[in-house]
């Protein structure tokens, strides 16, 4: 297995998403939006109510991350992934609304793999607990929605060569030990 990363520029086209395979090591350059528990609840409430969304979900990459505060002179503090499974109740809805990529850590429920297959999306993992290392790949960070949520606000991150791995692909394959492919 090759561990040299495939360089991906965001947003990903449907063609590129279809080329990706579980287990591939990638690096991401472009825009990520952070969102975790509370922000997901608000996004899905907005979708349910037909309200205007604070970010454009079409082709978007969502990063499950609540960074630590930016120290002086830096765009952001530590910024590693949080446990993705907590966002499983919301994720299919967001893939359906146009999200192409989610990034987090750890295995997820079957509905997320099915959503990836159905809506041509992928789920990526970054290394949990490598918050300092991942922060060095973030060039800019700006709160764009739900500022009252503090660390859980939605931030727009500009990343360069952000290291990750394809965990679920559009073919139902998985990288996690103990999970079987959907075939």
């Amino acid at each position: 297995m090759s561990l040299s990363p495939r360089r991906l520029v965001l947003p990903l086209s449907e063609d590129v998403v279809k080329q990706l395979r579980a287990g591939q090591v990638v690096s991401l350059t472009g825009i990520l939006y952070t969102a975790r528990d509370a922000a997901h609840q608000r996004l899905v409430d907005a979708l349910d109510n037909g309200d205007e969304l604070p970010i454009d979900l079409e082709g978007a990459t969502i990063y499950y991350c609540g960074p630590s505060p930016a120290p002086p002179g830096r765009p952001i503090g530590a910024a590693g992934p949080t446990t993705s499974a907590r966002m499983d109740p919301f994720a299919p809805r967001l893939y359906e609304a146009g999200v192409k990529v989610t990034i987090g850590k750890g295995p997820r429920s079957l509905v997320v793999r099915e959503a990836c297959r159905q809506h041509t999306g992928v789920y990526l993992v970054a290394t949990g607990g490598a918050g300092a290392l991942l922060a060095t790949h973030i060039r800019e960070a700006q709160v764009v929605a739900y500022e009252d949520l503090g660390p859980e606000a939605i931030r727009r991150l500009e990343v360069e060569d952000f290291p990750a791995m394809i965990a679920y692909d559009v073919y139902g394959a998985t990288i996690f030990c103990g999970e079987e492919g959907l075939g």
Binding site: G77, T82, T127, G131, A132, A135, T136
Partner: peptide, 16 residues
């Protein structure tokens, strides 16, 4: 590598 960067650049090891 993360531990090294956290020490050198004074960043928390993990955002949590």
């Amino acid at each position: 590598e993360n531990a090294q960067i956290a020490g050198d650049q004074h960043l928390p090891l993990c955002q949590d």
